[in-house]
Design a protein around this nucleic acid. Sequence first.
DNA 1: CGTATTATTGACCACTTTCAAAGTGAGTGG
DNA 2: CCACTCACTTTGAAAGTGGTCAATAATACG
Lengths: 192, 192
Amino acid sequence: MDFVASVVTGIATLTQTLEDGRTQMVGLLLPSDFVGRPGREFAAYNVTATTDILMCCFRRKPFEEMMERTPHIAQRLLQMTLDELDAAREWMLLLGRKTAREKIASLLSIVARRDASIKLRHPQGRMTFDLPLTREAMADYLGLTLETVSRQMSALKRDGVIELEGKRHVTVPDMDRLLLEAGDDNDGGFLV
Amino acid sequence: MDFVASVVTGIATLTQTLEDGRTQMVGLLLPSDFVGRPGREFAAYNVTATTDILMCCFRRKPFEEMMERTPHIAQRLLQMTLDELDAAREWMLLLGRKTAREKIASLLSIVARRDASIKLRHPQGRMTFDLPLTREAMADYLGLTLETVSRQMSALKRDGVIELEGKRHVTVPDMDRLLLEAGDDNDGGFLV
DNA sequence: CGTATTATTGACCACTTTCAAAGTGAGTGG
DNA sequence: CCACTCACTTTGAAAGTGGTCAATAATACG
């Protein structure tokens, strides 16, 4: 791991695996996200591009030296890392305590929220977006099997919480309803 | 949240809850751990002392100013936050993909490892330590019910992986066996 | 002691997984 | 242009893990 980098365009995932192949996604890297750890020689996670991806790379050593000289960088990196920690902890709650249906609804509401923020709109009312993940990637993110993901997507569709065109294009008729299904009391506020 | 603090002695937990009361522990605060977030007004988690606790508190504003003036502090805080992020991600793998038995074995091996490091010994062979958590706290940490925790503790005892004196005092006859039960390929290395 | 808290154990059930089969759709090459 | 293939997805049936509810046991504490 001789580089640190920042995602410019495209999507990548951070995963960890057990020896028998069970895998858990521990992070989703979207444009503007930072990859790599100053002061560490080896990568702790598998980083996988799920689309074509463009990253802005820095050699690790020079980057570390620059960090020494420029206090503001460490401070900014600290903010970003604290945000990631919050997201990770939010995800721990999801993984440890939510039902399959709530997990799916949570993921959908996160993607919807992020999509809305890109389009500079409020996440409410009727919303439409594309899922950037396969069912398997969703399963790895949510700690489920892909069959369960598929079943719960079908169930949410059957119950009118979402509408599907093809496999990836989702529309949410009523964002509040989705948030209710996600089970969060506080209406989210965490970012992927 | 007008303070940030560092734990001096005692143990506290960081938890999140869903509206219906389901709770998930997202961090365990041990001596030397840092609590609070520079640049944030409100607490995102419930902090609960599980023992008498002594913390070294700083008013948030002056602390933030000090951070501005003393680059080294931000850098040190960044290292600590990155370590916490690693621990959180390791925990995501546990919550999302491990079985109840593996979860218990993982928790025990973490406590054993930490205890060994305090006593400056290698975590191997026969080990003895106290659990700093109730069954309920273990359950909240592992994303299980306390009944399942109890059952799996009994099962590990029955299978000779651990021995129990009272509820809290554990001895592990063979650390390698426990690590095997924990299911981690790489023999851990993550710290609570 | 008696009471409250914490832990164990059992019976039953629900949800998620596992295993298996079939469906969908995009891309390729004949 | 169409059939074929491959990857992805959906759906079903059966099995299993962990959860729920409830009763009992152990321990601490006044």
